Amino acid sequence: MRGATRGLFAGLAAAGLALIPVTAEATPGSGVTGTILAQTTVGGKDYILREVTIAPGGKTGWHYHDGTLYAYVKQGTLTHPDADCKATVYKAGAAFVEPSGKDHVHIGQNLGTTPVVLEVLYVDPAGSPLSEDAPNPGCPFE
């Protein structure tokens, strides 16, 4: 272990903080890029407009949101399985809402041959991340 890392752990222990090992169970995404187009905070909520592109064969990884997400499929076909392992397919021109909370885990997949482009409005509690990683809820696919 490097000296700096040892010092960090020693400092945490001295402060009375326990280190609890955690298994990383989140499913990683691949082939996803995003660009924030606009962002503002009003009344304790962040409003973030983002363009998300999922390359052919790409996926977001299983995740959920702390706030509500509103999406519009600008291009391509998005396959969107939820925690019940049921997939909804959204084609270009479709709009959908993702509710907030851990009980609404899902994954976005591009099973097609052209990029999926989404226009997404995140309405989150101020300071929240855009998404929270989650493990696969038991579906027979990633």
Rank of each mutant, 00 (worst) to 15 (best):
Q109P: 08
S131G: 05
S128P: 08
G108V: 10
L118F: 12
V105K: 09
S128V: 11
E119K: 15
L121C: 03
S128T: 00
E132D: 14
D133G: 14
A126M: 01
I107C: 09
A134R: 04
E132L: 15
L118V: 10
D124C: 14
G112M: 03
P135R: 05
P115F: 01
H104G: 03
S128E: 08
L121Y: 08
L130H: 12
A126P: 02
G108Q: 11
E132Q: 14
A134N: 00
V105Y: 12
P129F: 02
Y122N: 12
Q109V: 03
G112R: 01
G112H: 00
A134F: 04
P137A: 03
D133L: 14
A134I: 01
A126R: 08
N110S: 08
E119I: 15
Y122L: 08
T113G: 09
S128Q: 07
V120Y: 14
I107P: 07
T113R: 07
V123N: 01
N136I: 04
V123G: 12
N136R: 03
G112F: 04
Q109Y: 06
E119Y: 14
G108E: 14
I107R: 05
G108K: 00
N136H: 00
G112A: 04
L111W: 07
E132Y: 13
Y122G: 08
P125K: 11
L118W: 06
I107D: 13
L118R: 11
V123T: 01
G127S: 03
T113N: 10
L130R: 11
V120D: 05
Q109F: 00
L121D: 09
V105H: 02
